[in-house]
Simulated scan of single mutants.
Amino acid sequence: MNRLGRSLLAAFVAVALVAGAGCASTSTQEGSGEYLDDSVITGKVKTAIFRDATLKSAEINVETFKGVVQLSGFVNSAADIRRAMAVARGIHGVVSVKNAMRVK
């Protein structure tokens, strides 16, 4: 391989490493794959809460970061808090559930 070929190969490898590092996750930032996974989890939790007959409240917000689901908003009772958390825990991919909900 000539000198130009080695230089081009080295440049390609350097660009690939930088691009790969840009998609990697850190403790405070998700990688692109994790972001998509969390979006799917959020959607599944929202759907499950919406479809649950005992949770009539549409005031539950769902956020997910690295599989950790945080539920916030307002519900009618402490039983609704427990039920919403149980529903969220039942979704595949959920690592843990944090409660920031309040009773009206």
Rank of each mutant, 00 (worst) to 15 (best):
V97I: 11
S72P: 02
A88G: 00
G43K: 10
D37V: 13
E34H: 09
K104Y: 05
V40C: 02
V62Y: 04
G90H: 00
A11N: 02
S77H: 02
G22S: 06
Q70T: 14
G73N: 02
S72W: 07
A19V: 15
E34L: 13
R51Q: 15
A79N: 11
I49N: 07
T54F: 13
D38W: 12
M85R: 11
S77E: 03
R89Q: 12
A58Y: 12
D52M: 04
H92S: 11
V94R: 02
A19N: 09
S77M: 03
T26C: 05
S57E: 14
I49G: 06
D37F: 11
G93H: 07
V40Y: 09
T64Q: 02
S32H: 11
I91Y: 03
K104C: 01
A78N: 10
K46A: 10
T42P: 01
A10E: 03
I41G: 01
A88E: 03
L17E: 01
G33S: 15
G93F: 09
A14K: 01
M101E: 01
S77A: 03
R6L: 14
S72T: 08
V40T: 12
L4V: 06
I41H: 03
R6T: 06
T26R: 08
G33R: 07
G5K: 13
K56P: 04
S72H: 04
A21V: 09
V45P: 06
N61L: 14
I49K: 05
A78V: 08
S7E: 10
G93V: 06
V95G: 00
T54C: 06
F12S: 15
V95T: 10
N99V: 05
V18K: 02
S77K: 01
S27K: 15
D38M: 15
A21C: 13
G22L: 12
G22T: 01
G33C: 03
E30A: 15
A19Q: 11
Q29L: 12
V45C: 09
E59F: 10
L4R: 06
V97P: 05
G90W: 02
F65A: 03
V103Q: 03
G5A: 15
V95A: 04
V18M: 05
E59Y: 11
V94W: 07
L36I: 14
V87T: 08
V40P: 00
L36K: 09
